[in-house]
Design a binder for these strands. Structure first.
Length: 590
RNA sequence: GGUCCCGUGGUGUAGCGGCCUAACAUGCGGCCCUGUCAAGGCCGAGAUCGCGGGUUCGAAUCCCGUCGGGACCGCCA
C-alpha cells in the first residue's frame, strides 16, 4: 500500500503517529527554509511541513515540486505550535512533519487553477480536462452526493421489497416520444436497435412477469436538443409496482424522498409534508405552468371579469375571441425602467403574446402603458383583486388562455430571479395530477398522448373516447420541485382492449400496431396485473440538492450543448471497414 | 430550425476608433526568504486581441460573414 492514512482523516488523536500519505500538492508555500505543502486526496487536505533538517535526498526533491504533483509523504503527525492552528481546515490542528518525500509523479503546468472556487475557465476547457475539473472539491462533493443519493435509494427500496433488475440498452425503436439514438446491427444489415428513451415497456413486462416491485438506476437516451437540465443520456430511478393505485405510488416515492433528503442534504428544508397535490388545470391557472416553483407566491390573477365591458381594445378583442385577461403583481417594481419593461415585453412576444400592458402604482399616481385606457373603477377593481400596494407593478396579458398562462408563468420566474423571491435552501416538492390524456397536434392533425401511450385513462372518462378525447384525463402524475419536473409517472394500461384503442386513436394503422407494439399487446393477454410506476430523474435531483445551475455539474463526463464529448471528441468518424460490415454507405449531410 | 449574449498571454478580466510596441491578477521561469496557510519580496518570459473580409489616413475597438461556446424558443411520449 502506498499509504497508511488519508489526508482528511488526520486530527489530534493521531498526534505522535508515524503515517504515510499519498496525494496531490494542492498548494505550496516555500519560505526558503521551511516549506509547507497542502497535500490533498479525496478525503481532504492536510499540511505537510518540510523542515531544513530533512534528509538531503528528500530536501533536494522539494524545491522542484509544483502544484498537482503526486507525492508520497512519510512523516510524524504533530500538534501545530500554539497560535499556528488553522481553524478553517478540518485538519488544521495538526501537521505532518515530513521524514521522507517521494515524488510518485510530476504534473505539467495546469490549463486552469483547480485549488480555488474563483476564476473557472470557459466550460469547454473544464470539459476537455474533466479529470482535472473533477479534482476540485466542489465537483468531488457533487459526485459524493450523487453516490449517497443512489445508495440511499437502493437501501430504501430494498427494504420496501423492490428488486433491482437490469434491462437492455440495445432495444427497439419507438415511434412515440423523443427521437431515438439508433445502433446498426451487423448481423441484420439494414436493421437497427434503438437505445431506450426509458425502460418503460420493459418494466411493464416485468410486472407481467410477476416481479411485483421493480427498480433500476436506469440510463436513458433521447436525441433532442440540450438544455441546462437535459443531456442526451441521463439517469432515472426507474420503478414500477403491481396492484397499486395512483396514491400508492405517490406515497411510496414521497416516503423515499422525505426520508432521503434530511439524510443526504441536511441543509435543505422541505416546504411541506405531506406534499401538496395540484391538478394540472389548477397549476396552469394559478402559476401558468405544469411545473410551478412553489417557493414563492406571485400567483396569476384572472381579471377577465373586471374588464368584461372594457373599452381598451387589446382587452376587448382578447375577450371577444374567447380568450382571457390575467395579471401578475410584481412587488416594489413600479420604478422599473422603460428599458426593463421593454425587455419583458420582448420575452412575452417571443412566447406568442402580442404585447404586455402595465400599471405601476407610483407616488405620483398610476402610470404604465394601460393607465390611460382603463377607467378609475377598473383600476380600483384590479387593485383590490390583486392586492396592490404602493410601489407595485401590474403586468397584464390578454390573449388565448394558454398563451396568457405561458407568458405570465415565465414572467413570474423572471421576477423570482430578479427579486430573489425563492429561498435557495427550500425544496418545494409537489405532485401535479390529473393530466389530460391527449393533446391535439395541429401540425400533423392528430392526437398525441400527453404522457405516453401506456398511460391509463381515468375510468370515469372512458366514454369520451369517441366524443371528446381532449377532455379525457389520465392517471398520470409529475413530481415537481422548485420549477423543475423531477419525476413523471402513471398508472398503466393492463388491458389489451384499452391499449389497442389508444393506439388507434393515435392514428397507428393495424399493421403498424402489430409491428411496433405487438409484444406489449400480446403480453397483456396473459394475465397482466394492474400496475403503475414512476421515473424520478436523478441528475435534476442532485443538481437541486447541490445548488448547481445545470445537470452537467453533477454528471462526471457530460456532453456540451451540442451533444459533443469535448474530452474524447465524440462523436467521431469510424473506419470505413466498420461501415462496410454494417452495410452502411454515407450519403453526406442530411 | 430560430432569438439573444460571449470570444483579448496558460487561466480570469480590463481596454470598446489614434494615448495599445495591449493593462491587471493569477499561473509559469529565476533569485531572496525558517511558521505560512490565497505566504511574502524582487526580476523575467508569455497575446499577431477566434478566423475571413470590409469601412477608415488609422481597427482589439465599427460593419458583414464564418467558426466555437453559453442561455432561451421550437423540440424533449
Amino acid at each position: 500500500m502506498y499509504r497508511t492514512h488519508t489526508c482528511g482523516e488526520l486530527n489530534a488523536t493521531h498526534v505522535g503517529q508515524v503515517v504515510t500519505l499519498a496525494g496531490w500538492v494542492h498548494r505550496r508555500r516555500d519560505h526558503g527554509g521551511v516549506v509547507f505543502f497542502d497535500l490533498r486526496d479525496r478525503s481532504g487536505l492536510v499540511q505537510i511541513t518540510i523542515n531544513p533538517d530533512l534528509n538531503a535526498e528528500s530536501l533536494e526533491r522539494v524545491s522542484a515540486i509544483r502544484m498537482e504533483w503526486v507525492l508520497q509523504i512519510e512523516g510524524v503527525v504533530q500538534k501545530r505550535p500554539a497560535g499556528m492552528e488553522n481553524p478553517r481546515m478540518k485538519t488544521g490542528e495538526v501537521e505532518v512533519i515530513a521524514k521522507n518525500v517521494q515524488v510518485l509523479n510530476s504534473s505539467k503546468a495546469l490549463p486552469f487553477m483547480i485549488n480555488g472556487e474563483t476564476d473557472l475557465p470557459d466550460e469547454n476547457t473544464r470539459l476537455k480536462y474533466r479529470y482535472l475539473d473533477l479534482r476540485r472539491e466542489r465537483m468531488t462533493n457533487n459526485l459524493i452526493l450523487r453516490h449517497n443519493v443512489i445508495r440511499f435509494m437502493r437501501d430504501y427500496l430494498d427494504r420496501q421489497g423492490f428488486l433491482e433488475v437490469e434491462t437492455p440498452i440495445l432495444f427497439k425503436a419507438t415511434p412515440e416520444g423523443a427521437r431515438d439514438y439508433i445502433v446498426p446491427s451487423r448481423v441484420y444489415p439494414g436493421q437497427f436497435y434503438a437505445l431506450p428513451q426509458s425502460p418503460q415497456q420493459l418494466k411493464q413486462l416485468l410486472m407481467v412477469a410477476g416481479l411485483d416491485r421493480y427498480y433500476q438506476i436506469a440510463r436513458c437516451f433521447r436525441d433532442e436538443d440540450q438544455r441546462g437540465d437535459r443531456q442526451p443520456e441521463f439517469t432515472q430511478l426507474d420503478l414500477e409496482m403491481s396492484y397499486v393505485h395512483r396514491d400508492d405510488v405517490l406515497a411510496m416515492v414521497e416516503g423515499l424522498y422525505t426520508a432521503m433528503i434530511p439524510a443526504v442534504a441536511p441543509d435543505k428544508q422541505l416546504l411541506a409534508t405531506p406534499w401538496p397535490k395540484l391538478s394540472y388545470r389548477e397549476a396552469l391557472e394559478r402559476f401558468g405552468t405544469d411545473k410551478p416553483d412553489m417557493r414563492f407566491g406571485m400567483e396569476l390573477v384572472d381579471v377577465s371579469e373586471i374588464f368584461a365591458r372594457s373599452e381598451f381594445k387589446v382587452f376587448k378583442s382578447a375577450l371577444e375571441s374567447g380568450g382571457a385577461i390575467k395579471c401578475l403583481l410584481a412587488p416594489n417594481s413600479a420604478d422599473m425602467s422603460r428599458k426593463e419593461v421593454d425587455a419583458l415585453t420582448e420575452l412575452a412576444k417571443s412566447q406568442g403574446a402580442k404585447g404586455l400592458a402595465t400599471l405601476s402604482f407610483t407616488d405620483d399616481g398610476v402610470k404604465g402603458t394601460a393607465a390611460k385606457f382603463l377607467s378609475q373603477q377598473e383600476v380600483e377593481a384590479v387593485k383590490s383583486r390583486a392586492g396592490v400596494r404602493a410601489g407595485d407593478l401590474i403586468l397584464f396579458a390578454a390573449d388565448e388562455r394558454s398563451i396568457v398562462n405561458k407568458v405570465l408563468g415565465n414572467l413570474r420566474l423572471v421576477f423570482r430571479d430578479k427579486l430573489n423571491l425563492a429561498d435557495p435552501n427550500l425544496l418545494a416538492f409537489i405532485w401535479v395530477v390529473d393530466f389530460p390524456m391527449f393533446a391535439w397536434n395541429a401540425e400533423e392533425e392528430r392526437w398525441d398522448t400527453e404522457h405516453h401511450p401506456f398511460t391509463m385513462p381515468q375510468l370515469a372518462d372512458l366514454d369520451k373516447f369517441d366524443t371528446d378525447p381532449g377532455a379525457i384525463l389520465s392517471d398520470a402524475y409529475d413530481m415537481v420541485c422548485n420549477g423543475y419536473e423531477t419525476a413523471s409517472g402513471s398508472i398503466r394500461i393492463h388491458r389489451r382492449d384499452i391499449q389497442h384503442k389508444i393506439f388507434e386513436l393515435l392514428g397507428h394503422k393495424e399493421a403498424d400496431i402489430q409491428m411496433k407494439f405487438g409484444h406489449m399487446l400480446e403480453a397483456f393477454e396473459y394475465g397482466a396485473p394492474p400496475h403503475g410506476g414512476m421515473a424520478p430523474g436523478i441528475d435534476r435531483l442532485v443538481m437541486l440538492l447541490a445548488d448547481e445551475p445545470n445537470i452537467r455539474e453533477v454528471i462526471a463526463f457530460p456532453k456540451n450543448q451540442n451533444a459533443r464529448d469535448v474530452m474524447a471528441d465524440a462523436p467521431s468518424q469510424v473506419e470505413q471497414k466498420q461501415l462496410q460490415e454494417l452495410g452502411i454507405r454515407l450519403s453526406g449531410t442530411p
